[in-house]
């Protein structure tokens, strides 16, 4: 693992993992990053893109930070 680089210009690849059993269907991730997260028929999170490209990283981080159930994990490799 390389240490994370704070530079905005060199974004590390990001991998999104969701913990569906934890999800409480608040829908906040869908509001913040609709290209990356969606909900199934019961409102439970599904990932549309597990490896979002760099311009979406900030929104995905925001989604993970506001998820009330901490059901979104990010691996920035």
């Amino acid at each position: 693992m390389t240490p994370s680089n704070p530079s905005r210009r060199i974004e590390k690849p990001m991998r999104v993992e969701v913990d569906r059993p934890r999800c409480v269907a608040s829908g906040q991730c869908v509001l913040v990053a609709p290209d990356v997260f969606d909900q199934d028929d019961d409102g439970i999170v599904v990932t549309l893109d597990e490896r979002p490209d760099a311009p979406r990283h900030e929104d995905v981080r925001e989604a993970a930070a506001i998820c009330p159930a901490a059901a979104i994990a990010l691996r920035e490799e």
Partner: peptide, 21 residues
């Protein structure tokens, strides 16, 4: 202000928040 806790936080966070919004 999105990180507010007006709807609570954790697994009990408001179910109706999308409608309220």
């Amino acid at each position: 202000a999105r990180r507010h806790v007006a709807f609570g936080y954790g697994v009990h966070q408001c179910l109706g928040q999308p409608l309220a919004r």
